[in-house]
Simulated scan of single mutants.
Amino acid sequence: MPKMVLLAQYVALNGTDLSSYTKKGELTTKVEEKEVTTYASQGWKELLGGLKSGELALDFLQDVAAAALDSIMWPLLGTVVTFEVRLNNAAASASNPKYTGSVLVNGWNPISGSVGDEASVGVSYPTSGPVARAVS
């Protein structure tokens, strides 16, 4: 069975490669469960899939220098922007699929942490519309 260690994940928001600021990226997708159990179900619950949704969670190392992370993210607050994530920063392929879509940038935490901590920012953005998987 193949195994993988994440060493060079690719993360882009609004067409900007943010991989050099990102220390964790996680894309999750799910489908609502809609119960359609009837008396004919013989005592077993029956389910169908409903609406799909997703979430893009990212942990960044903060950088407030001119043209760096904070100045890139701040103007995006409240907007829907495109995203692309890949397990590796190499080109998308059958062994390195890319996932794309849009997210609502619904928050930004420019300052957080305690004495002695690295300056980091954790965000979690809901997807807006479909998430696609492609190999090229």
Rank of each mutant, 00 (worst) to 15 (best):
Pro126His: 07
Leu87Phe: 13
Gly50Cys: 02
Tyr10His: 05
Leu77Lys: 09
Trp108Pro: 14
Asp59Thr: 06
Gly101His: 01
Thr28Ser: 14
Met4Ile: 07
Tyr21Met: 08
Gly49His: 03
Ala67Gly: 10
Ser120Tyr: 09
Leu87Arg: 07
Gly107Glu: 12
Lys52Gly: 09
Gly49Asn: 02
Ser124Ala: 13
Gly129Phe: 10
Ala91Leu: 04
Gly113Met: 03
Trp74Arg: 05
Trp108Tyr: 09
Val36Leu: 01
Trp74Met: 14
Leu87Asp: 15
Glu26Thr: 07
Leu76Met: 10
Lys23Ile: 13
Ala68Cys: 14
Ile72Trp: 01
Ser128Phe: 10
Lys24Phe: 11
Leu7Phe: 14
Thr37Lys: 00
Glu33Thr: 10
Gly54Thr: 14
Ala92Thr: 14
Ser93Met: 06
Gly78Asp: 08
Asp17Leu: 01
Pro130Gln: 10
Leu7Thr: 08
Glu26Gly: 12
Glu55Gly: 05
Ala8Trp: 01
Ala91Asn: 04
Ala68Pro: 09
Asp17Gln: 05
Leu104Ala: 00
Lys98Trp: 09
Gly116Ser: 06
Lys24Leu: 03
Val31Leu: 07
Leu13Val: 10
Ser120Asp: 04
Val115Tyr: 05
Tyr10Val: 08
Gly129Glu: 02
Asp117Trp: 03
Ala12Cys: 12
Ser136Gln: 08
Glu46His: 13
Ser102Cys: 11
Leu13Thr: 10
Ala94Asn: 14
Thr28Pro: 02
Val80Met: 06
Val31Ala: 04
Leu69His: 00
Leu76Phe: 10
Gly107Met: 09
Ser95Arg: 13
Thr28Phe: 01
Asp117Phe: 03
Ser19Ile: 15
Leu48Ala: 13
Asp117Pro: 02
Ala132Cys: 07
Leu51His: 15
Leu47Cys: 12
Ala57Trp: 11
Val85Thr: 11
Gly113Val: 01
Thr16His: 04
Pro75Ser: 11
Val105His: 01
Val131Met: 05
Ser53Arg: 02
Lys24Asp: 10
Leu27Asp: 11
Ala40Cys: 05
Lys52Ile: 06
Asn96Phe: 03
Ala40Trp: 02
Gly113Arg: 04
Leu104Gly: 00
Arg86Pro: 00
Thr22Val: 02
Glu26Ile: 05
Val81Trp: 00
Ala57Pro: 13
Thr16Arg: 15
Asn106Trp: 08
Gln42Glu: 12
Gln42Cys: 10
Trp108Asp: 07
Trp74Asp: 15
Thr79Ala: 11
Pro97Phe: 01
Ser102Gly: 05
Val121Met: 03
Val5Arg: 08
